[in-house]
Every structure is written in structure tokens, then in C-alpha cells.
Amino acid sequence: MDTATEGEKVETPLNGEGLLSRLDPRVKIVLFLVLAWTVALAGNLLQVFVFLPLALLFYSTAYRKTTTILKLLLFADFFLLFVVLTQLFLGSPYEGILIFFKSTVIVLFSLLLLTTSSVFDLLHALHHLKVPNKLLQITFFFYRYLFTVREQLQLAEKSAKSRGFIPKTSIQTYKTYAYFMGNLLLKSYFKSENVYKALISRGFKGYFPVFRHFELRKLDILFSLFTIIYWGVAVWKFYL
């Protein structure tokens, strides 16, 4: 179990870091989608490498978080490691290398364009980008109570440990984890009932009023122009 210190908030890894965090999240989401999909569709290394300078330029705005970024790039994703290694040794090494760079570039874009905004700002931006409201409400409640649910689990773990529980390969251990989950499901079920009552008693009609509105500023426009031109030239020269 990932034990985080109490009181820690669940938040995007680069929230508020560097120049890119000051951009309008709507702009960043759209640009991210364009760039990520382009790299995802790349068929050879050259098509990936042409976007590497852009990714590194973005990275330079958050160089102070190099450790965090490296950790997320290299160690977060076991599946990537698995695919790259099996390709290097049991499949096609070229494919392995291609996948490694595709993934790295896309994840860099994701880290620097998406996770430099807070979760709330991203959700808010998705609302403006016409993502269905019901889905966003679920996302909002999910995020609102994620920390509570995690804390609940940590408390149950603490309770079990304080009664001598040590996780090992045994039915008793699996049963204990099942009890943790049952307990979480039960508490969350009741919690959601209370949340619902609180909502309707405040006249909730199924959408969240947004107090703060995004405003496109000069910086957003310059950044978009630069990125789109870079993208256009790259696609024209290397993809078409």
C-alpha cells in the first residue's frame, strides 16, 4: 500500500510549476490532444524525434522538478518497461525503442501540459470543452472524496496491524483485504447517500455553478501559435 503522510492532498504532480502552469488549461488540453495523438500515430523513430525538442523545451520550464518527472517517466509505468524489455529480447528491438520514445514524448507532453494545472482547473476546462456534465459530476465527486476513501483504507490497515496483522501469502491475508474493501464499499455507500441528501437539500439540480472563468490572454495565444506552427511544420515535413 502506498502510505502517504496524513493531510497530504491528492494533486497533479506538477501543479503550479513553471511557465506552463500559468496558461489557460483549455488551451493546454487541446494542444496536448493534438500533439499526443500525432505522436501516438507515428510510425517511425524520425516522426517521434521531431517532437522531442518541443517536449524538452516544455520540460525546461519545469526543470526544477526533474526528479519528479524522471521518476514518473522511468519507474511509474511497469507495463512500458515490460513491453520494451520483451521487445528488446524476445521481439523486435526497433519496436521496443520506438515504443519507448513514443511513450516518453507523450508522457512528457501529458506531464507538462496537463499536470501543470490543478485537478479542479482541468475539470473546469473539460466543462468548457463540452465533456458531458454527468461524467464531470462523477469525476468531481470522485476527486472530492478520493482522499477520504484512501484515509479510510489506511485506518483499517492500521487497525488490522495493531491487532497483529502482517500481510503474507495466505487466505487470511486475502480475506483481510476483502474486509478492507467491504468496509470501504459500505462506508462509501453511506457517504454517498449523505452527499446526495446534502446536495438536494441545497437545491442541487445537476450542474456546478462556475465562479471563476477562464480568459484567453496574450501568453495563451502566443503559446498556441508557436506550438501549432511547430506541429504544422513537423507534420508537413515528416508525416505527409
Binding site: K134, Q137, I138, F141, F142, S188, S192, V195, Y196, L199
Partner: peptide
């Protein structure tokens, strides 16, 4: 809506 979110 909140139930799905919490279980998620």
C-alpha cells in the same frame, strides 16, 4: 451519481 463516484 455520487454513489458511482464514491465506489469508483
Amino acid at each position: 451519481i455520487p454513489r458511482t463516484a464514491l465506489l469508483s
